[in-house]
């Protein structure tokens, strides 16, 4: 089977998987007790979006480290692609979190430590692109933004794991609890839907990421041809 056929098959599989996740989120998994109405169903979309935002940050770090070692412009394109998707998914996680907060506590924004964490993640992504825009020279842009991405990654464990656990939070308990142990107190159908959604969103991220990197590869090849 050619690469194109495998790719097409994987795209169809991803599409079907996400359709099933959406159907399971609304019709198969039960609504969680202790939440207003059907509001808990947002967890099947909000948690994977936040997970992908953090995953994108990690991919951005790996690509940035690779760039500083190899100086390959494609690694810089990989880092930028991951950051672009990270920005979109952290924005989506913020919006879905705000909608949930409004339903539960009648307020879109409560200055909760987790809200602050995702807002700072958004600011870091925005600052990363502000830096890229401010450097016209491509090589310098790649090096400086890689350095900033690595520096910003240092703050991430504090944002994601330390600050939300130091301060009192309205946010429902996370799957990985304050003690670092996995918490599996959800209904099995909810848990299955959540994990299926995490897999689906991770697949969606890698599909979009691959598309962006392929575009960058074409652009770089054309640039190389023009310079030759």
């Amino acid at each position: 089977m050619s690469d194109n056929r495998v790719r097409t098959a994987l795209h169809w599989l991803l599409g079907a998987w996400l359709v099933l996740v959406i159907a399971a989120a609304f019709f198969w998994a039960p609504a969680a007790a202790g939440f207003k109405g059907e509001s808990s169903r947002i967890v099947f979309f909000h948690v994977p979006q936040a997970w992908v935002a953090v995953l994108a940050f990690c991919v951005n770090l790996i690509a940035s480290l690779r760039y500083l070692r190899t100086r390959d412009p494609l690694d810089d394109a990989r880092a930028a692609a991951a950051a672009r998707l990270g920005l979109v998914f952290s924005l989506l996680a913020t919006v879905t979190g705000s909608i949930f907060a409004h339903v539960m506590w009648n307020s879109f924004w409560n200055w909760d430590p987790r809200e602050i964490s995702i807002a700072i993640l958004l600011l870091i992504y925005a600052a990363y692109f502000a830096l890229r825009e401010a450097v016209p020279d491509e090589e310098r842009r790649a090096s400086l933004s890689a350095a900033y991405a690595i520096l910003a990654f240092v703050t991430m464990p504090f944002l994601v794991f330390v600050v939300p656990r130091i301060y009192w939070s309205l946010h429902p308990d996370t799957i990985i609890g304050a003690t670092g142990k996995l918490k599996m107190q959800m209904d099995p159908r909810m848990l299955q839907t959540l994990f299926a959604s995490l897999v689906g969103f991770t697949g969606l991220f890698f599909w979009l990421y691959t598309l962006d990197v392929r575009l960058a590869r074409v652009r770089l090849a054309r640039q190389a041809r023009e310079e030759a």
Partner: peptide, 9 residues
């Protein structure tokens, strides 16, 4: 722009 997100925590 670059400093604020880094030093907020």
């Amino acid at each position: 722009i670059l400093s604020v997100p880094l030093v907020l925590p």
